[in-house]
Nucleic acid binder design. Structure first.
Length: 589
DNA sequence: GCCGTTTTCGGCCCGACTGTTTTCAGTCG
């Protein structure tokens, strides 16, 4: 568990205790809100603390901030510890079960003396087996079976899905839904629609004149393993693939309100509704209530327009200032997939002693794919030759051979298609060594059109060392792109620690380009850092890092990621024409 | 406990679904 997740969990626990001890739902909500906000931070909370930035966390006020500082400094909070002693510790793990909140967990833990967090789960299973849950007042057989079912679902649960794993699952579901004449429209919702790099479950909206019948049809989807909750308006199911899905239902005249409501994010909606309340308007998935009148919205555009705002693209709906800017009509015009004119991070199948994996498809098929996408240029950037084991002479030989091979293939492709529109650039992805040296000599670097420098080892260095090694590695005219900057692998490896302000400042001053790596398991730079870099005026390039031709379609994930970071076309250099790109990369004509 | 285009006091997004009761509490997103 990351430090942020641990901190969030602590606050959830405290909130739960206040719910039990004082019945104060608002104080509980305050702690839960703070916990959610910290969970969603992408900077580690200790970094914010050391930069004196804790004030910026929404929902964290003076009191919680003080407790957080105590927690960061000492690993615990005295006030919290004394509160925890007043409830059985076994209640907390029970709250991880769907449908079990603070009060249910407390009642179970209290009744059966679950005073130890580590054994509470096993003890609960035993109690369920013996059918003893009904000994608690107000708990009948249905509650018992609900908890039992939730435990089964939890046991078969999976971690968050990559967006690229979720979209195909969603798309099959959409195909099924759209087959029915009852269903006029179907759309993904939630984090899937906001294009978060990972999503928790697969939410679907359906639009029908006969919502009840449409829901019945949706629940007959053969991929549904079982229905967890079922309603005319909302149902929750578990798919055979192990993933959970929500299905929401709407009439056509309320379709816009429904999409808006369930696309979220939660923070975006809370801000929107709080602001609307000030004008005497109450927002819901059914529309906007003004006094006794409910106003319908069949499109989201009309919904936002009624509130005096321009349309806010789903990728921006995180309460990062988009609501205020939509009121002023000052939202940025975001980059689109059709703006992209090339991809400079593609690995070819040229076979040599490479420091990392080589690509698996020929240059010809890469060029053909690029032509299909109507690109103006592609750049091949294989990994550098092995750093050790090879002499500089041998490396030079390899790189010359590679250049000859690529040019020969390129010319033969041009002849075949009888046109000369697509341009080829020959680059290289060069390792940043732990000490900041590049894994290629300056002399060989000069033979390239450009180099992408990137970290591939020693991810756990200090903030200072990582910052220094990145700045050192960029200090050469050909080392112009910083590849997958944080090195994160979603669900697998955290981002490196570095002083990003310093790096962005350097990039802006020295015309270095930051890569937004579109590989679905990377999506690196993270969205909040894209926003941060954007404030410095740094330019980006969206690259796929393709190791075979089929991965070139990942460009759309990079574009979505850029949009989540508020990036417009003018900030992305691979929206430029080839001529302008040459000047950005300092290429001789 | 948080927070401010009715505010430093007095509200706190909004509604669905479930279970146990018949008007509501708990949980979820």
């Amino acid at each position: 568990m990351t430090r942020n997740a641990e901190t969030a969990r602590l606050l959830y626990k405290v909130g739960a205790v206040f719910r039990i001890l004082e019945g104060d739902t608002f104080r509980t909500r305050a702690y839960f809100n703070a916990a959610t906000a910290i969970e969603n931070l992408s900077d580690p909370i200790e970094d914010l603390y050391s930069k004196n930035n804790l004030e910026g966390i929404p929902g964290v006020g003076e009191n919680i901030r003080r407790y957080l500082i105590e927690y960061i400094k000492h690993g615990k909070v005295r006030h919290f510890e004394s509160q925890f002693k007043k409830v059985p510790a076994g209640m907390f793990p029970l709250m991880d079960i769907r449908g079990v909140g603070p009060i249910t967990a407390y009642k179970i833990a209290k009744k059966f003396h679950l005073n130890d967090a580590s054994s509470a789960g096993e003890k609960l299973k035993k109690i369920l087996k013996q059918g003893r849950i009904t000994e608690i007042e107000g708990f009948k057989e249905r509650t018992e079976s609900k908890i039992r079912k939730a435990l089964e679902v939890k046991a078969g649960g999976k971690q968050r899905l990559l967006l690229a794993e979720a979209l195909p699952v969603a798309s099959l579901f959409l195909d099924y839904l759209k087959q029915s004449p009852l269903i006029i429209e179907a759309e993904p919702l939630g984090s899937l629609r906001r294009k978060l790099p990972t999503v928790g479950d697969i939410d679907m909206a359906i639009c029908s004149q006969k919502p009840g019948e449409a829901m019945t049809y949706a629940l007959e989807y053969p991929e549904i393993a079982h229905v967890i909750t079922r309603g005319d308006k909302v149902s929750h199911v578990k798919l055979r693939s192990g993933y959970e899905a929500d299905i929401k239902n709407s009439l056509p005249n309320q379709w816009g309100s429904l999409l808006q409501h369930y696309t979220g994010s939660k923070f975006h909606n809370i801000k929107l509704r709080t602001k609307a309340l000030g004008k005497g308007l109450s927002l819901s998935e059914y529309g906007i209530r003004k006094g006794k009148r409910l106003i319908d919205f069949s499109t989201e555009e009309d919904f936002y327009k009624f509130l005096g705002m321009t349309y806010i693209p789903p990728e921006l709906r995180e309460d990062h200032g988009e609501i205020e800017m939509a009121v002023d009509s000052s939202l940025p015009i975001l980059v689109k997939e059709s703006d992209i004119k090339g991809d400079l991070h593609i690995h070819s199948d040229f076979d040599f002693p490479s420091s990392h994996d080589i690509g698996s498809t020929t240059l010809t098929s890469i060029l053909k794919q690029a032509d299909d996408y109507k690109y103006e240029y592609v750049g091949i950037s294989d990994h550098n030759p092995k750093y050790t084991d090879l002499s500089d002479k041998e490396k030079e030989k390899i790189l010359t051979k590679r250049r000859d091979y690529l040019l020969r293939e390129f010319q033969s492709y041009e002849k075949k298609v009888k046109k000369r529109t697509l341009k080829l650039l020959i680059g290289l992805e060069v390792d940043i060594r732990p000490d900041g040296k590049r894994a290629l000599s300056d002399k060989l670097l000069d033979t390239l059109d450009y180099a992408i420098v990137a970290i591939h080892s020693s991810f756990n260095l200090s903030v200072k060392d990582n910052t220094l090694r990145i700045l050192d590695a960029l200090d050469h005219p050909k080392a112009i792109i910083l590849g997958h900057p944080t090195g994160r692998l979603l669900n697998q490896r955290d981002s490196i620690q570095a002083d990003w302000d310093k790096i962005f400042d350097y990039c802006k001053s020295n015309n270095k380009i930051i890569e937004i790596n579109a590989s679905p398991s990377r999506l690196d730079l993270p969205d909040d850092l894209i926003m941060e870099a954007g404030k410095y005026g740094v330019k980006f390039i969206i690259n796929t890092d393709s190791h075979n031709t089929s991965q070139m379609e990942f460009m759309k994930y990079g574009v979505w990621q850029a949009r989540r970071g508020w990036a417009g076309r003018s900030q992305i250099i691979n929206t430029l024409s080839y001529q302008k790109l040459q000047s950005v990369l300092n290429l001789e004509k």
